[in-house]
């Protein structure tokens, strides 16, 4: 496997979606190619940093207002038959 091919398969490799043969080829390449190893490690770290970000929340005042508006609309909707 060469660098270009490894780059192509990188996400599938990270997500464990490659078959055994391609996984072995990717590992063999990574063992000898410092640049690809760095790209792998830093891509994994990138994913990790985003995964551990606090989920975004609606700011409290905005959330309360939105809740009240929608609750009104919800309660006023015509009765289902």
């Amino acid at each position: 496997m060469e660098c270009a091919e490894l780059l192509q398969y990188l996400s599938e490799y990270i997500d464990n979606n490659l078959d055994e043969e391609l996984t072995a080829e990717a590992q063999a390449h990574l063992a000898t190619c410092a640049n690809c190893k760095v790209v792998l490690d830093t891509t994994q770290q990138t994913i990790f940093l985003y995964k551990q970000q606090e989920p975004r929340k609606i700011p409290a005042r905005r959330r309360r207002r939105l809740f009240n508006q929608l609750q009104d609309a919800f309660l006023k909707r015509p009765e289902s038959s």
Binding site: P55, R56, I58, R63, Q71, S80
Partner: peptide
């Protein structure tokens, strides 16, 4: 929700409002 249960609305809002906001923002 079809019965206009206010608790159901609150559950729905709590479950999805932040997620939808996250995508939209």
């Amino acid at each position: 929700l079809r019965q206009k249960d206010p608790h159901a609305f609150a559950t729905l809002f709590d479950a999805y409002s932040d997620k939808l906001f996250g995508l939209a923002v």
